[in-house]
């Protein structure tokens, strides 16, 4: 978990005053989490990128027109927009997520892992893809809390309120989600390789 010197709230204030660098920092800071939130639903890289852009079009329109509510936290708000757009996509298309093959590496992954061999990079990407599949296999209640806390950055208190359970139940579900994932990883021989998951 990273702590930033300049908070999201401060960046939003700067952005409201026309500072585009502040917006670039906000986008950069959260792009992976929001993109993964969408990707976990639609399972298609190109479609997920389209929905990511659509998400930020709504963000830009809301903030620049002065309709952004300062009371909420930025990332949970953006994540909810992204989540709703991804769900809406399937409602409009009148279909549900089906098994789609992973679409391989992308430009950023290639740059990020440029010093690794092609084989190492493939192993890493395969491992990550497997872990995302394992997350999807979790019981609904556990996956829901994991997605809300890890990707949407909602607090456990907020999750408890949204899902209408006690905070201890939300925490317990998260704990079991992590334990179950760990067991599944052990079973599938997904090791805690420091080359794959650096400290």
């Amino acid at each position: 978990m990273r702590k930033y010197e300049v908070s999201d709230s401060q960046l939003i204030s700067l952005y409201k005053n026309g500072n585009e660098d502040a917006f670039a920092e906000l986008v950069s800071r959260h792009k992976n989490k929001i993109f993964t939130t969408i990707y976990m639903i639609v399972k298609d890289h190109d479609l997920a990128e389209d929905l990511l852009q659509e998400t930020y079009v709504k963000v830009v329109n809301t903030v620049k027109s002065g309709r952004y509510n300062e009371e909420g936290k930025f990332l949970p708000w953006v994540s909810r927009i992204a989540h709703n757009l991804a769900i809406d996509h399937f409602r409009k298309a009148k279909r549900y997520p089906t098994i789609v093959m992973e679409d391989g590496s992308n430009v950023f992954n290639s740059l990020e892992f440029s010093e690794e061999s092609i084989e190492d990079r493939q192993i890493k990407e395969d491992t990550h893809a497997l872990l995302r599949e394992l997350i999807k296999e979790l019981p609904d209640s556990q996956r829901e809390v994991l997605m809300m806390r890890h990707y949407m950055q909602m607090s456990f208190q907020e999750i408890a309120e949204v899902t209408d359970v006690s905070i201890n139940t939300a925490l317990g579900r998260m704990r079991y989600a992590l334990i179950n994932l760990r067991k599944k990883m052990d079973k599938m021989n997904v090791a805690y390789d420091k080359n794959i998951y650096p400290e």
Binding site: K31, T36, Y39, E49, F108, T127, H150, L181, I196
Partner: peptide, 13 residues
């Protein structure tokens, strides 16, 4: 486990 989940995040282009 949490680090693993973070590492498995996808990156947009």
């Amino acid at each position: 486990t949490v680090k693993s989940i973070t590492a498995a995040e996808r990156v947009p282009s």
